[in-house]
Design a protein around this nucleic acid. Structure first.
Lengths: 344, 344
DNA sequence: TTGAAAGCGTTACCAA
DNA sequence: TTGGTAACGCTTTCAA
């Protein structure tokens, strides 16, 4: 590569170069290389349909490097008529290691397919407006955020999105659906608690915003087991946990399903601090199978939640992009399995 | 809003409409409304320099709604010559609640300034190539990922980025730097441990990839206190923690600084399981001041880490975008303070 | 092997 | 008050 040109005095100062301070275009490269813009495009994109002589190639590459030329993605996709953008929703709330791990893996896999992954946070914008904001980017595929309805899906598809996939509790018309049925999580927990002889189950509902989407179905899942269930709102702080622990005693509950392991840890500690024996008096089970559950004493029973692999999902996206007319699929993707330890 | 038009048979079928299946453009809207493209643009952008009659406005809005018109962001920014895109790096590894909370807040604040926040995961692409990939989007501002050097910064600025900000341990030439000096975290921990009479300090170094960026400076910070320090690699699993606990005994350490609270919890548990009294025999201190530290027994001492507020940072970005010629600033933004509890 | 030119969807200038 | 038109940067067809 050799010497780096002084950024304060780039090639812009040469007579034939672009105006000082402006961004070099392919026309600038063409001028410097003494060829046409077409040739520049051929060379830089390795267009196989056209043979360009080796000396010309070199001159073009040289000129591009010297100017620090970077193609303009917007111009390119405008001309191409489509993008390789895959839009992912930025979660509005910290969503835990489970989901963020999944998102990461998904990104990785998608970029192996040469997609441009864009996490897009349409904070504060809701409903159709959010969909429109997303559609402006003309993504080729979208992992639709929870809460986007049929209208939103429709806007996206009309804007050219070949694949719209929802990841959530229910299918949305027109989109391929990956169903994450969190009731299953509650069901596994509830059935286990019943099996070990518990009858009155408290279900911790986090007070934090945005978690209802997961918490409500988990509660419903416990209900479906036929157990006697009472929902217990719990803020993620110690003081409130102490109050709730008291409440658990007063209500005479003999088991608690705690939304996830973190809330389980919080409540378990509060219960222990008020002298409750676990699992003797109250059984506690969490969810998500986080590391911390293994470190508690007693070790925390939990429900392991399996999300689809990012690789798998990326393949689905790519397939849908290549074959857009395929019918919307609906697939269950959330696996819930019991991890029994010592707290139940 | 009334009835939703059937997406299977949109207005595309009317004689004057766009071809079936294509995405409507402003020209389509103009045709349907019986006006020129210019007028459509004026109306939809509320251009104040031009007065359009109310009936015309209505016709245009009506037509846009009927066609489901969504402006094409790429075309717009191509014409405008600039974007409102702010690029944030997607962390390659789960980076914990601290940083992801900060990113979220930052996003929120930026979108209040009407920027389009794009989290861009250039997974696998490194160095100048990453910078070039980023530059293709022509972002107006970039929060540069750690590891981007001066060359990368330069590429971004040449591509039109008005503000390039690094968030990391050291300034990079040409970019505004928010220095997160994690040595400070180690220093606070080390000084505290010395103060309570500890002499041989083990510093837990997470084996997980990507955390070195934080772990190394934290270790260095402890060293700077003059204490006798030994680095202890620790994988985030129980088995290895048990081995390391043994190691801590054999090395005769009387204190451990554990990278963060999660690793502290892991090791503390392992130590307790081998019968070590905390803080009697070994003092343990974590970092990041996570909730879980409060729930441990003994309660975990920790170093609270204060990052800049997203609001503050968004204001900085906006200022830099408006006034690009201002000299690069270097600012320390990481505050570290001791939170003493029971484990030290 | 290379070049000229059209056109992608927008917006802004200037003319009507 | 509105319309024609040029231009943004790029790719690609057609011609040379």
């Amino acid at each position: 590569m050799g010497q780096i040109p002084n950024p304060q005095q780039p090639a812009a100062t040469r007579a034939t170069g672009p105006a000082r301070g402006s961004v070099p275009t392919s026309a600038d490269v063409a001028r410097l290389a003494g060829v046409s813009r077409a040739t520049v495009s051929y060379v830089l994109n390795n267009t196989s349909a056209v043979r360009i002589s080796e000396p010309t190639r070199r001159r073009v590459h040289e000129a591009a490097r010297e100017l620090g030329y970077v193609p303009h993605a917007a111009a390119r996709s405008l001309r191409a008529g489509h993008t390789r953008i895959v839009l992912l929703p930025t979660p509005e709330v910290p969503i835990g290691p489970l989901y963020s791990g999944f998102l990461n893996e998904f990104q990785w896999a998608l970029s192996r397919f040469d997609y441009t992954v864009v996490q897009y946070g349409s904070v504060g914008v809701v409903g159709d407006d959010a969909a429109r904001a997303w559609a402006e980017l003309r993504p080729v595929a979208v992992l639709a955020p929870v809460g986007m309805g049929q209208r939103g899906i429709d806007i996206l598809k009309r804007s050219g999105a070949k694949a719209v996939i929802t990841l959530g509790p229910e299918p949305v018309a027109g989109a391929h659906a990956l169903l994450t049925d969190h009731r299953e999580v509650g069901r596994v927990a509830g059935e286990h608690l019943l099996e070990v002889g518990r009858r009155r189950i408290g279900v911790v509902m986090p007070r934090e915003e945005g978690l209802d989407v997961f918490a409500e179905p988990r509660l419903a899942g416990v209900r479906e087991t036929g157990a006697e269930v009472v929902g217990i709102p719990l803020a993620y702080d110690e003081d409130h946990a102490a109050q709730v622990a008291q409440q658990v005693r007063e209500l005479g509950l003999d088991a608690v399903f705690a939304y996830n392991d973190e809330y389980a840890m919080l409540l378990m500690r509060a219960l222990q601090d008020t002298g409750v024996d676990i699992p003797g008096e109250v059984a506690v089970i969490g969810a998500d199978d986080l590391m911390l559950g293994r470190l508690l004493r007693p070790r925390l029973s939990t429900v392991h939640v399996a999300l689809p692999s990012g690789q798998e999902l990326a393949e689905l996206v790519d397939r849908l992009v290549r074959d857009p007319q395929s019918e919307p699929e609906v697939r269950k993707v959330l696996g819930a399995s019991l991890v029994r330890r010592e707290s139940t």
